[in-house]
C-alpha cells in the first residue's frame, strides 16, 4: 500500500528533485527500503549502515515523530503521510 513521503529540500536532489514521492510498505522501515529501491541515492541518508534511523533526521507518521512511537517498526497504513525533516541542532 502506497504512502506519501515528503522530502526536505536537502534530500530532493537525491529523488529527481521531487518534494513528495510514493512508496510502499507496512512499516516506516519498509517504506524507506522501497524509497531507496526507487532512489538509490537516498541510501545512507535516512538509515544508517546498521539499519537504524539516522540521528540527523526526524521522521514523522502524520503528526507524530516516530522516535516517540516504534521508530522504524512504526506501522503505516494507506493515506498516512510520512515526512522526513532534518534534525536541527547546534551549540
Amino acid at each position: 500500500m502506497p504512502v506519501e513521503v515528503r522530502l526536505p529540500t536537502v534530500l530532493r536532489q537525491h529523488a529527481a528533485g521531487q518534494s513528495s514521492v510514493k512508496a510502499n510498505g507496512s512499516t516506516i522501515g519498509e517504506v524507506f527500503e522501497d524509497l531507496v529501491r526507487q532512489f538509490p541515492l537516498l541510501s545512507g541518508q535516512v538509515i544508517t549502515e546498521d539499519g537504524a534511523l539516522h540521528k540527523f533526521v526526524n521522521v514523522y507518521r502524520n503528526d507524530d515523530d516516530v522516535r516517540f512511537l516504534d521508530k522504524l517498526a512504526t506501522p503505516v497504513a494507506d493515506d498516512d503521510v510520512v515526512t522526513i525533516l532534518p534534525a536541527v541542532a547546534g551549540g
Binding site: 526526524n58 515526512t83 525533516l85 534534525a87 536541527v88 547546534g90 551549540g91
Partner: peptide
C-alpha cells in the same frame, strides 16, 4: 545554555 535541539514537532508545524 550551550546547546539547542530544535523541537521536532515544532519543526513539523512550521514546515
Amino acid at each position: 545554555d550551550m546547546l539547542y535541539e530544535l523541537d521536532s514537532h515544532d519543526y513539523l508545524k512550521a514546515d
